[in-house]
């Protein structure tokens, strides 16, 4: 199966390495970064392409870009892993639309387009007989979409809640464990590369809220946007508040929750028993799914990282390959 990939940052490199190192039956035939691109229908030599990227900052020839790749016949599935824009979704949104309109399936890790325009992308894919998959957009390596779609098929999901942001979880964990102030814990998270220079997106709960929007729209077919989520971040949480909770074997975590029956879509710091399965350490993510038949299922795993995100993307690729032609 021939793969084209747009974006060669940390996630893109992880995917390229996985294709190179594991015998998955996938061939990378086109790739573009922000400055260059290459199209090789017979298959790219990934090792030398990565080496060139490392050395020059470019994966191919300047002037070759996403548009050339999208218009070529060199691929069967597009992997869209360019940087996220939460406000417009562009340019990724345009790339995804273009590929779907050509009947090509798309796998993306890009939260912006999926959160902003899920319904119309979903329809576009259906219209052209293509797949759109986005496992990597929510909870990194945790197979939340596959679990709900396949593993829990036939179940009604009554509630979904969890820890969707590793940065916030790290900060709260450190405040609880070491009695650090919010500012100290944030600084530490930055030094370790867990928080961006501008941490607003994470600590204000926006990142977690975007994931809830994706889940609400994809799992229940709702038509929600970021404005529909009630959001409270962790930037007001004090070490003293956590200490008060800890007196009773409780702690504080940033929890995102969707309860469709009550029209609840909320991200907020919550008091939670330390023994609760959602109380995970450091940058881990955790999500609990309440169902009618299966009861409660809790998934815990890494929510970010190059190889971890690559794992989610690869699973989507293989899902499309293995299901292709099987659907009615």
């Amino acid at each position: 199966m021939r793969i084209a990939m747009l974006g060669l940052g940390s996630v893109g490199k992880g995917i390229a390495r996985a294709i190179l190192e594991q015998d998955l039956g996938l061939s990378l035939t086109a790739v573009a970064d922000s400055k260059s691109g290459r199209i090789e229908p017979s298959g790219i030599d990934i090792a030398s392409m990565l080496e060139q990227k490392e050395r020059t900052g470019m994966c191919g020839t300047p002037g070759v870009g996403a548009a050339d790749i999208l218009a070529s016949d060199a691929y069967d599935i597009l992997i869209e892993v360019s940087p996220t824009n939460a406000e417009t979704g562009e340019p990724a949104l345009g790339y995804i639309r273009e590929a779907l309109s050509r009947g090509m399936s798309v796998v993306t890790s890009n939260k912006g387009p999926v959160a902003l325009d899920y319904q119309s992308l979903h329809l576009l894919a259906k219209e052209h007989g293509a797949y759109l998959r986005y496992e990597a957009t929510v909870c990194g390596a945790i197979p939340i979409m596959h679990t709900i779609e396949s593993g829990l098929a036939g179940n009604t999901i009554t509630k979904l809640y969890g820890v969707f942001n590793g940065t916030c979880n790290y900060i709260l964990t450190r405040m609880a464990e070491e009695g650090l102030t919010y500012q100290q814990a944030l600084l530490e998270a930055r030094e370790l590369g867990y928080a961006e220079a501008d941490p607003t997106y994470d600590v204000k709960g926006i990142d977690a809220a975007i994931k809830l929007v994706i889940l609400a729209n994809a799992v229940w077919g709702m038509e929600k946007t970021l404005d529909d989520v009630e959001i409270t971040g962790i930037d007001g949480v004090t070490t003293a508040a956590i200490a008060l909770a800890e007196e009773q074997d409780l702690t504080i975590r940033l929890i995102g929750e969707i309860i469709p029956a009550e029209d609840v879509l909320r991200v907020s710091p919550r008091i939670i028993p330390k023994s609760h399965p959602l109380v995970v350490e450091e940058t881990l993510n955790a999500v609990a799914i309440d169902t009618e038949m299966a009861g409660e299922i809790t998934l815990i795993g890494k929510g970010a990282g190059s190889l971890e995100t690559a794992s989610a993307v690869i699973s989507d690729l293989l899902f499309i390959r293995d299901c292709h032609g099987r659907r009615s």
Partner: peptide, 19 residues
């Protein structure tokens, strides 16, 4: 070990009341 011991994760139904 990064998350609660297995007995907690495994036996959700019994520990319900505690939550």
């Amino acid at each position: 070990f990064p998350f609660p011991p297995y007995n907690v994760v495994k036996d959700l139904s019994r520990s319900r009341l505690k939550y």
